[in-house]
Amino acid sequence: MVYVSGAPGAVTVSLTVNGKPQTLSVAPSTTVLDLLRERLHLTGTKKGCDQGQCGACTVLIDGRRVNSCLQLAVMNDGREITTIEGLGAPGGLHPMQEAFVAHDAFQCGYCTPGQICSAVALLKEGRARTRAEIRELMSGNLCRCGAYTNIVDAVEAVMGAGASQEAAE
């Protein structure tokens, strides 16, 4: 049994974040989201509600999309986390990031990293084929600017590109 007290800095966690090993001392109550934003200064992962009700904090943990606001860092010891910063950066954007720019799939940009991480996972999951299915499986990512139709366009474009690539192979 691993046991730690509740004090700040009481527990050491080791994580791989965007391919880079990180070892930090945190409180048991530290979430993955706060660890990313406040400790690693990876502020691309956004805090929209901190309650699992908006999706702005979506990251990939061991390849699966989850709300990082509801993940205690200590429980993710040893896991691999990919954030928006790990997908691509200006000059070398991920195809999904490119598609979001090309389709103007955002306005204020605050929900955007979560939307993109979610969309990347959506494609990997392979459960969405139609626009209706994209909409349903992206519904865990709210956008107050109302960029929804453009987001679906962007996801569809990347999905289509992937499909035609597969067909060519």
């Binding site: 049994m1 730690v4 007290s5 509740g6 527990v11 048991p28 109550s29």
Partner: peptide, 28 residues
């Protein structure tokens, strides 16, 4: 959010012992 202590169970028995012995403990 209150601060709390944390324990990671390696077996079902260990988990049950840890929670049943502490009225303020919860599984997560």
């Amino acid at each position: 959010m209150m601060n709390f202590s944390y324990a990671r169970a390696e077996s079902v028995g260990e988990a049950i012992a840890a929670v049943s012995g502490d009225p303020h403990a919860r599984y997560i």
